[in-house]
Design a protein around this nucleic acid. Sequence first.
DNA 1: GCTCCCTCAGAATACGATTGCTATTATAGC
DNA 2: GCTATAATAGCAATCGTATTCTGAGGGAGC
Lengths: 336, 336
Amino acid sequence: MADLKQIEIARLAGVSQATVSRVLKGDPQVNDAMRERVLAVVQELGYVPDARAQSLRSQRTRLLGLVVHRASEALAGDPFFSALIASIIEQAGRYDYHLCVDTARTARSQRAIYEELLRTRRVDGLILVESETHDKRIARLSGEGFPFVLIGRYDPADAVCSVDNDNVGAAFMATDYLIRTGRRRIAYIGGPAGLTVTRDRLQGYKNALESHGVGYDPRLLAFSEFSERSAASAMTDLLSLTPPPDAVVGLDDLIALSAMREAKRHGCRVPDDIAFIGFNDSPLCHYVEPSLTSIAVDIPALARKATEMLIALIEGREPQPKRQIVPARLVKRESA
Amino acid sequence: MADLKQIEIARLAGVSQATVSRVLKGDPQVNDAMRERVLAVVQELGYVPDARAQSLRSQRTRLLGLVVHRASEALAGDPFFSALIASIIEQAGRYDYHLCVDTARTARSQRAIYEELLRTRRVDGLILVESETHDKRIARLSGEGFPFVLIGRYDPADAVCSVDNDNVGAAFMATDYLIRTGRRRIAYIGGPAGLTVTRDRLQGYKNALESHGVGYDPRLLAFSEFSERSAASAMTDLLSLTPPPDAVVGLDDLIALSAMREAKRHGCRVPDDIAFIGFNDSPLCHYVEPSLTSIAVDIPALARKATEMLIALIEGREPQPKRQIVPARLVKRESA
DNA sequence: GCTCCCTCAGAATACGATTGCTATTATAGC
DNA sequence: GCTATAATAGCAATCGTATTCTGAGGGAGC
């Protein structure tokens, strides 16, 4: 059953191996009668071509690589990644590609990823997620002309293919919603100040304030590390203002959630006294109390665009545009 | 830089291509001086062998396949899978293997997995997660002698390699704990009835009841899909019993949380009126209110054993024993 | 000095599928 | 009837590496 080769099919069908190959590739230069004959044998024996040989000959593995720049422990707890992986698998499958996933946490494994996946031609292209310290790698990738696409990072300066959420628009949406529902002293708790995502969402926040003529108060800005304590402490500071904020836009669900907890601990009622909005619409949002209103990132769209761009690159087409933005969506729950 | 072949290295080092191959494979039958000479050229040019050619020649791709029998939407929200994937990647990497992930939910994708991954020899072996008990594919895999390992399923009858949590023991632990803390009408919300994990945990639940002489009431059993709605609806049904349950063992954290939420919506106080225990100890458990007591599954151990067994099979060693059990641990929080 | 053995590197081949080129046949056009 | 043309299948080279086979060279032992 297993371990059949084209040449055996050819022998049994009384044709040459080249003909079997042509039939399987759907080559029109094959007579119908002969095609039938070959297909009958293929069907009967359940022959499937050997991907290894095809890869060598065609110089294509039909394998995409997904590299996540995060330690596996951090990856482990984050549902964003299982969603992303699942979506990419699904999209890749539509084009007969498979997905090879790797994490690049240590320096050693970073080298490993790039060398072992890419230079060895094990995959036809790469999708990179959450790359931060990789500037040199990206330059190298571009330099070698290897097909790759970034998710969640962009650099207007370079002509690299990327897909990202509409962070400015998403923060605008959150802030706009809060203003429309009567909030006026809206605080923003960002992540580390250096991150693009922190800056972009701050911009969206400011845009919304301005578009409604709501005054911008820099004291309502806070920047937090990605830790529960840091977010809680930022919240405490905000609550000491007079008057205190009546709403908070958090950089992500965990920051918003930690802030919300802290506010409750200070006796604030949510959403009556103060409203909260997070980002990512993680499963967490459903389960906390009050449930957290959040800006949903359209992960399937992110995956679809990234996959399609990458496959286009692999197959020699030039994707237009090189940078794609996926719109976000407000998921209203109890906290705002 | 790219697209170097052994033969070019050979030419530059003034040796034959075979020698280059030998040096790279660490063949001892090669003179030190010549080895140095070759390695110098390899280093300088940054040559890496082509994995496609190696695969064809060696009949090994050094790629493991991970097949998850769940729709991508269900996979998406579940942190268990990102943890599992991350751990398997890490373990596989220690043996210089990479991981190819696929989902198998639709008939089309099932065919895709088995035909395209395995029969095409695209991967050297498979790890199957959450396969249903009556899976014909598994019989076929065994029949064709392909290396594969099951996670979360076993069948004492067949000699298939598998790794599983101690589901019976874990559910026993949960139920036993509830009984010891005074609960008597303990409900069990399983997943789909065909899954081994559903059955095993049910068994552990029954064992605990029996060992304490607590009566077993089949009306306290419910089976849910992996969706919030389904779990909530199961909970609603359970609450309509008289008397209602005073505790719930959920198949996983998401099911337990959905049920807990639903119970609270019905006015139940947790844990006073009703206690909840989930499985997987996902990050979620910390953040909900009350925080969820959960049975922690040792995912890294699961991944390590599965990966090691699979690689053993691939490399022709017979793993002993064929079935491995990973113990669980109770993480006590507020909900029970 | 000769044989024997041992070490080691090169030549040749295999892995299984694809594809450019060629050979054959059929058909048409004159 | 003969050539031009098209249709179609086969031959053989090729993809880049691993490995078997072969042979050259050197040292040891008599």
